[in-house]
C-alpha cells in the first residue's frame, strides 16, 4: 500500500504551523511561525492577539509547508487539524482553513487531539514502541497516558490545577523574569542548588495525578517571608529549588506509571520536555530502572503541525474522519476521540 501523505495544521495556541508527513513517520516539512516575541510584552499569550496573527499567517504557512515538502495539494491523502484542546479562537483558524481546503480539494479531513499529537512527535523520530507510557508536559497540559496501540489512549493521570509549564511561567513572573518563564528558570537553575525547601504535591498514595498550584503558593509565601525578614533571595537557588520540586514529582509519577502498567517504554513529550534538568534526570533514572526512554528533539517538543500530521495519519488509516461541520473544542476530551 502507498504511504499516505498527510498535511497537518496546528493553531491551538501561539504557534501557526503546517507540516507534511509521509507514512506517519517521515517528516517532509514542518513550518512553525512562533508568536513568542509578539506576546512577550504582555507577559503571556493574549488569545485575541494570537488569533489575529494566525489569520494573517495561515495561508502562507500552508503554502510554505507544501513547497518545502515538494508536494502538491493533489498528492495529499488527508488533512489533519487540531480540534482541541486549546484557545477556541485560535483553533478556529486552523479548522476553518482545513475545512475550506478539504472542500476545495475533496481530500478527507481528520480531527486530531492536541495531546495525541504531542505523543506522536516521538513517532517521527522512532516508531512508537507499544505498549508504552507517555508523560506530556507543556504550558497547557500535564498528563500521563497509557497506549497499547495506535489511536488508543488511556489517561492514567492529569493535573488537578495548573499545568507544569504554567507553573513555570507563573513562578517566573513572581521572580520578575520575562515571558516565557520556562527557559529562564532552567537557565538560572543551572547555576543554583535546590537549597530552599519547597513542597512536592504527591496527592494520595499511589496517585498518578498532579497538582502544581500549591507549589506556586509556596513560592509566593517564601518570597514574602524573605522580604519581611529583609533577607536576600538567591534567584539561582530559588529557580533550582522550584525546578527540582517540579521535576521530582514528574519523574517519580512517571516511573510509578511505568511500574503499574508493567510496560518497558516511557515517552516524554510537550514543551516542558525541552527542560534540561527533566531530560537529564529522567534519562538517568530510566537507565537505572531499565526503562527505555524516548524524548523528541526540542523543535518537536513545542507545538508543531508535524506531530498533528503524524497522529492524523493513523486516524486516517483507521477511517476516523470529520465532515464539514467540524468545530473547535477547547476542552476536547481524549476519550471522546477514542470512543
Amino acid at each position: 500500500m502507498k504511504k499516505p501523505i498527510v498535511l497537518g495544521i496546528e493553531t491551538s495556541c501561539d504557534e501557526t504551523s503546517a507540516a507534511v508527513v509521509s507514512g506517519g513517520t517521515h517528516l517532509l516539512s514542518n513550518v512553525v511561525s512562533s508568536q513568542v516575541k509578539l506576546h512577550q510584552r504582555f507577559g503571556g499569550v493574549v488569545p485575541e492577539v494570537a488569533s489575529r496573527k494566525h489569520v494573517e499567517r495561515i495561508t502562507w504557512i500552508i503554502q510554505e509547508a507544501l513547497d518545502q515538502a515538494k508536494v502538491s495539494l493533489k498528492e495529499l491523502d488527508a488533512i489533519a487539524v487540531t480540534k482541541g484542546p486549546g484557545l477556541v479562537g485560535a483553533l478556529l483558524i486552523g479548522i476553518s482553513a482545513a475545512k475550506a481546503l478539504s472542500f476545495a480539494t475533496g481530500i478527507p479531513l481528520v480531527p486530531v487531539h492536541h495531546i495525541a499529537g504531542h505523543v506522536y512527535a516521538n513517532h517521527l523520530i522512532k516508531p512508537l514502541p507499544f505498549p508504552l507510557v507517555a508523560l506530556v508536559v507543556s504550558g497547557g497540559h500535564t498528563e500521563l497516558l497509557f497506549m497499547e496501540k495506535h489511536n488508543r489512549f488511556e489517561r492514567l493521570g492529569k493535573t488537578m490545577d495548573d499545568a507544569a509549564g504554567e507553573a513555570f511561567d507563573k513562578v517566573a513572573r513572581l521572580m520578575g523574569l520575562p515571558y516565557p518563564g520556562g527557559p529562564e528558570i532552567d537557565r538560572l537553575a543551572k547555576k543554583g542548588e535546590p537549597i530552599y525547601d519547597l513542597p512536592r504535591a504527591w496527592l494520595e498514595p499511589g496517585s498518578l495525578h498532579f497538582s502544581f498550584s500549591g507549589l506556586k503558593s509556596a513560592v509566593i509565601q517564601f518570597l514574602q517571608q524573605m522580604k519581611s525578614q529583609k533577607k536576600e533571595v538567591d534567584q539561582h537557588h530559588l529557580a533550582s529549588s522550584f525546578q527540582t520540586a517540579v521535576v521530582d514529582v514528574l519523574i517519580e509519577k512517571s516511573i510509578n506509571a511505568v511500574r503499574k502498567t508493567g510496560v518497558q517504554h516511557l515517552l516524554l513529550a510537550g514543551g516542558v520536555s525541552a527542560n534540561r534538568q527533566l531530560r537529564q534526570q529522567l534519562t538517568e533514572r530510566c537507565r537505572k530502572e531499565n526503562i527505555t526512554l524516548q524524548i523528541p528533539p526540542p523543535e518537536l517538543c513545542t507545538d508543531n503541525a508535524a506531530m498533528i500530521a503524524a497522529a492524523g495519519t493513523y486516524q486516517y488509516l483507521d477511517g476516523h474522519f470529520a465532515d464539514l461541520t467540524l468545530n473547535a473544542d477547547p476542552n476536547y476530551e481524549m476519550n471522546q476521540r477514542v470512543e
Binding site: 489575529r52 489569520v55 495561508t59 478556529l92 483558524i93 475550506a100 481546503l101 476545495a104
Partner: peptide, 19 residues
C-alpha cells in the same frame, strides 16, 4: 464579531489560494 470575521476571511483566503 472578531471570531466571525476570521472564520469568513480564513475560509475565503484558503479557497482563493487552493483554486
Amino acid at each position: 464579531s472578531y471570531t466571525g470575521i476570521r472564520i469568513g476571511v480564513t475560509t475565503a483566503k484558503t479557497l482563493s489560494w487552493a483554486h
